[in-house]
């Protein structure tokens, strides 16, 4: 288990979270290399289908990053993401996907250190959860 490297799919909103990720790279913050970033226009466009498809295709965890409530470029896209997340998390839990494997985080464009911290924290948490495989139930 020690050489297990988690695969985390991160859907990052192009206005805040993606900028934070970009800045975190430029500023050379130390980050775990377990994240595959998918840049989206808004956290509100991350359909629950995307999250399920990520898990079904072999992701160990999914992160959705958006602007803080009130800061959305499209006024209320992140509120839509916020409404969706608890129900999706509940569905995933019922299907045996642990809570820590799906996260919705608000990351401001200027907050590169926070982005790096979330990534590092999440990588470690998922590493301790072990690989996710829907086939464990088969």
């Amino acid at each position: 288990m020690s050489d297990f490297e988690p695969k985390i799919i991160a859907f990052l909103c192009t206005w805040c979270a993606y900028v934070a990720a970009d800045t975190a790279g430029i500023a050379r913050y130390k980050q775990k290399p377990n994240v595959r970033v998918i840049r989206v226009l808004c956290s509100g466009m991350v359909d629950p289908n995307y999250v399920l498809k990520a898990f079904a295709s072999g992701a160990d965890a999914v992160l959705v990053g958006g602007c803080h409530p009130g800061d959305c470029h499209y006024i209320s896209g992140n509120i839509k993401a916020m409404r969706r997340a608890p129900l999706l998390r509940k569905l995933l839990e019922e299907m045996g996907v642990e809570n820590g494997r799906f996260r919705l985080e608000w990351i401001a464009a200027s907050d590169a250190p926070q982005y790096a911290e979330i990534i590092n924290q999440m990588s470690e948490e998922v590493r301790s959860l072990g690989p996710f495989s829907p086939s464990t139930i088969k």
Partner: peptide, 24 residues
């Protein structure tokens, strides 16, 4: 793609709240 995910999307879009605790 997946009926459960689609239902999550459909139901949560009808929640009339902007407050995380109310939604929970």
């Amino acid at each position: 793609f997946d009926p459960g995910a689609k239902m999550v999307s459909a139901i949560s879009s009808t929640f009339d709240s902007n407050d995380a605790q109310e939604i929970a």
